[in-house]
Amino acid sequence: MSLLSYFFGSKPKTASVAKERLSLIIAHERTTNRAPDFLPALQRELIEVISKYVNVGVDDIKVQLEKQDNCEILEVNITLPEQPTR
């Protein structure tokens, strides 16, 4: 392939590289920059409440807000510790 492109002079397409890089960074920045201010507080309080009943740590709860077209989805992901068998 590289030998062929060497002879026929086709260059790598930088536009597609740009598009790929942008789609990654924009997706990332949308979730971080556009998150409303209450998310960290919500996450903290959720941990407080849930840890009353189940033994969970800070990293076990993930709160994310996603936007799809006109509707926003609040995703709360709680990883419960494995139940000790009684």
Partner: peptide
Amino acid sequence: RVEEGEMLSYKDVQELL
């Protein structure tokens, strides 16, 4: 430049934004 793959097309930009 778009045709030559050197520049993002308007469709790319629209798809991203």
